[in-house]
Amino acid sequence: MNRSLIGELVLKDWRLYRPMILSCMVAGAGALALSQWGNEPTLVVGAVAFFIAIIMAATMLPLAGILTERKNKHLAFLMSLPITFLEYTTAKLISTLLIFLVPWFTLVTLAISVIGFRNFVPHGVIPMTLILCGLPFVGMCIMIAAALVGESEGWAIAANVFCQSSYGLTWYFLNRIPVLHNNASKPKPVWDPLTLNILGGELVLILVILALTYFLQSRKRDFVF
């Protein structure tokens, strides 16, 4: 593996998409601030806006970093560099994940801190918050896979539509699970087996999607750009 050049590609993406990430972080922090205003409507609006900020980061990164790069014909330029197709894939997986982790980790930590310190909502909501924040992470991995493996705008858009419509549905069904629903209103976080299984499931799903993406890319013989 050509580590130095993979590092250069990751740094390049970081420099290019830093403003985008920063704006998502500011939006997410603003949404959290709004949720602390003191009444229920602002709490709901703030919470929804907070998740939208995370979803924005999860959507924009694969679209800008992979799809737009292909659509705007930057790939020919990148592939003229001394890298292989698989090294490009590795660089894209690393950069998209690392760059996404910056706003994701910051906003999730901020949200849990706010819930923990402000006592505005029951602390029992923390596990559910983590589960919900994990969904855009899984969605982003699906979009990375579609954009890289599908090599077309159509697949990436289809994956995007699928993810966007799945978030609402998944939230709805999670909220209808009695154990999770009841735990959310408790004064302390409850880490019951179901919660841990769902969180573990999200993590496994992320790893499987990324590994599958890498495997499928490694099987390709021709690089289309």
Partner: peptide, 25 residues
Amino acid sequence: MPAEQVAAKWDIGFASEDMRLYESQ
């Protein structure tokens, strides 16, 4: 090629008509 493409590409300069740079930069 393609086995030693990385070693070869250090010394190859490739430009094509449909190659685009990053317009935001």
